[in-house]
Design a protein around this nucleic acid. Sequence first.
DNA 1: TCTGGGGTCCTAGGACCC
DNA 2: TCTGGGGTCCTAGGACCC
Length: 423
Amino acid sequence: MNPLYFLVDCNNFYVSCERVFAPGLRERPVVVLSNNDGNVVALSNEVKEMGLPFGAPFFKVKELVRKEGVAVFSSNYTLYGDMSRRVMNCLEGFTPEMEIYSIDEAFLFIRGAAGDPVEYARRIRETVKQWTGIPVTIGIAPTKTLAKLASRIGKRDRSCRGVFDLNDGGRADRALEATGAGDVWGVGRQYAELLRRNGIRTARQLRDAPERWVRRHMTIAGLRTVWELRGVPCIPLDELPAPRKGIVSSRSFGRPVERPEELREAVAAYTARAAEKLRAQKSVAGSITVFLSTNRFREDDPQYSTGVTCRLPVPSSYTPRLIHVAGRLLDRIYRRGYRYKKAGVMLYEIMPEGDAQLDLFSRLHDTDRTRRLMQAVDRVNRAMGRHTLHFAAEGIAMPWQMRREFLSKRFTTHWEELPVVLA
DNA sequence: TCTGGGGTCCTAGGACCC
DNA sequence: TCTGGGGTCCTAGGACCC
């Protein structure tokens, strides 16, 4: 048997996470909203069948959702993150070679000797379901692009019972024929339109497109996609994620914010969060950007959207230092008289802790002291919950925080919120 | 009243170097 | 009339992903 890629994709992941702890919702329509209860970002099959589109603004579909008796949840990333970790742990038992591709997807590289791949995939699927409660679909193919396609088809095709094998020439031809070029991994809206204008409508036509044309109009990345569709692996398994080159922390506010003190608190809170992510990968940042914007959907309001960057004299991950700099940047861009909707912080020029160039006046003793202080803060927050220790600059009341009107409990990570079973 | 939050990679062109 | 042949780095813009 040739080596194969399995793409394991959790079905309607956020919805499935909610259903694990609300069994009464298994047969009922369910949606999960984005941050700030903004858009619909996860739909159960029942809701998809109603024709509700992915990404619809919640306020526009609220009435329909109420009439149809759809259960609604705010995003609960604490829960989804932990459920994802459980699924991935389970998958790791099946192969040493695995890439966690997103919160709800993983590529498994299977080198044969596993007998019938379809049987093996079924066993994986049943194990994940039994151990975590999450249903998954598995696509099997000789390349990652084809495996993505296989799982996509598997989700629609009920008869395959959650495992779709594309590792078969005749079957692959038919599947590619029935798939739009724009549904191929790596082909987005712009390229789909370009392809359509050039008479390429199906994945099969893309597979058979002239290489020179693809190379010229879709760059080397497009050419890789074409080869992958032909069954030639070009996109390797990426087992250990590279450290981030940029870290962004931003949020829309739960309501418009005008007062500079509130903006200052929000920016401090986002900075603290970004710095925490930075330290988690043992890095420091050499530059920081603060940005602000008003609500672009309110066309009658005066609009203002801007950002400003500064380079730090010495790269740092020390939260108080970063909050201080972020505050100064905010002073430079803040303008009175606008209703702000969103703010954020970006950290760039990221490098490993030990690589940072100190200046003439830095003392190693100081950087060592601040690093140990931050480590202690991070340890406490990991053990006792995020925000157990935080900085006064972040404020206490946080009136600008996002809306999460339909939030479920953090069933798997907080003692006070464990599910209770009555027997 | 209400519209998310993260990331990556590729290319072209210009400045500059020897 | 004839004006080399490599490089690197940076930035902006455009594409993509979940």
